[in-house]
Design a protein around this nucleic acid. Structure first.
Lengths: 225, 225
DNA sequence: CGCTCTATTGATAAACCTCAAATACAGTGG
DNA sequence: CCACTGTATTTGAGGTTTATCAATAGAGCG
């Protein structure tokens, strides 16, 4: 269930149908750290991540940022905002070289009519997102910072982990500040925490790269306070 | 937009259609503080609140509760969990004498086929819920406790406020602990905070009843730190 | 090799929780 | 109508967690 929201909106369609659908959209290339859309802007297009990764976040009036989620290849964003004729509820920024495919409103509506599976998949993905957010909301309310950091890393690991010799690398450029914004804390606390875990041999970290060397230890830490 | 999620799943249908639909479900009466369903249970029925109010919350393994939202008359809960053949993601408990109408899976699917508006409305309500939760997530990460309490009260006021001589009464039995669980803090902090606001003339409170006497002051407090 | 961005670390302070104890309140049954 | 009982609320003291600020070190890039 953890990878449903990672899975394609186009589940259940044939490859043929899929390529046909892709052709109805326009590809767009983004450099690293470029803005795709900003919260509050009128939602005119929706985007499918083809390569790379987007950071979806919310920013408050004082500039404090909170990362809602990272969207990787195969994930569709802003579709519902477009359908609702609404505004983007979050800000989307690429974090590395990224290619997205964009559709405008009329096209996506047309696609959904032609391929009803798309709407159903979207609904399911939406539900996963709600679930995830509710979980994180509970964690944010009830757990201590280090615990939340552990859970964040594990969550990111499950969604973007790749096995290496030393452990599981989180395959996202991830600064201390990013982890902080994802866990609801500060970059200083994240730095201290990662350092202490590194000494224990649970993680290894370099500049914007985190490898989890002992997932089991992290899990048990997250669960037993 | 704040009252969309409060609005009926049956928007756009005629009264005739509405009464017909209601008759396909079974009414169920609940006393105050009785459990309707528990998180993790298999989701077999969905419920429409007819009278009264439900508290939807999540509870972690140590018993710490977080209130996701209060569902009042006209609000449907657990529909998507049922459709997905899943488990209830939250716990639902009545907080006063409450009447709900229940449908099982096959009936609700049948209804959605017969009245497509229902599905569309559900989707919209779901989106409002996501939006709300994302907002609160940001607030939880970025704001101080008193600010969050202010926002909680204002949010509850907008959804369940009724005008009285002294101000706007939040028409939900609401203990200090409830407010705490909704704001991500402790009942002690809520108590102190409400006390100090009472001295300033912003709110009046009795046992499980909160009246906001100066909403404007609260709003400005929430926004200007 | 400088410049910029990221990470580390220490010192300090603030925000908030926890625990304990007292008090107020509403409902119940005599 | 009143005493009784179980909650809800208030309040204080003390301690912990975590944020903030400041300063330094390190990494990568042109």
């Amino acid at each position: 269930m953890d990878n449903l929201s990672k899975s394609d909106v186009f589940n259940g369609l044939t490859n043929e149908q899929y390529t046909k659908i892709i052709k109805t959209g326009f590809p767009k290339r983004l450099g690293p750290k470029s803005m795709l859309f900003h919260q509050g802007d009128p939602a005119e297009k929706c985007y499918l991540v083809n390569q790379g990764r987007l950071k979806l976040s919310k920013i408050n009036e004082h500039g404090k940022e909170v990362i809602i989620r990272y969207a990787g290849a195969g994930e569709l964003t802003a579709a519902v905002a477009v359908l609702k004729n609404g505004k983007y509820p979050v800000t989307a920024q690429s974090i590395e070289k990224t290619e997205v495919i964009q559709w405008d409103k009329s096209t996506i509506i047309d696609l959904m009519h032609r391929y009803p599976d798309i709407a159903i998949n979207m609904l399911n993905i939406l539900l996963e997102n709600i679930d995830d957010l509710q979980h994180r909301y509970l964690e944010l309310c009830s757990e201590h910072v280090e615990q939340r950091i552990a859970r964040s890393l594990l969550r990111l690991m499950r969604r973007a982990g790749s096995k290496t010799l030393n452990g599981i690398l989180i395959d996202i450029p991830l600064s201390r500040e990013n982890v902080a914004d994802y866990s609801g804390t500060t970059l200083y606390t994240v730095s201290r925490t990662l350092r202490s875990w590194e000494k224990k041999g649970w993680v290894r970290s370099a500049r914007e790269r985190i490898t989890i060397t002992d997932p089991h230890a992290l899990v048990s830490f997250a669960e037993n306070r």
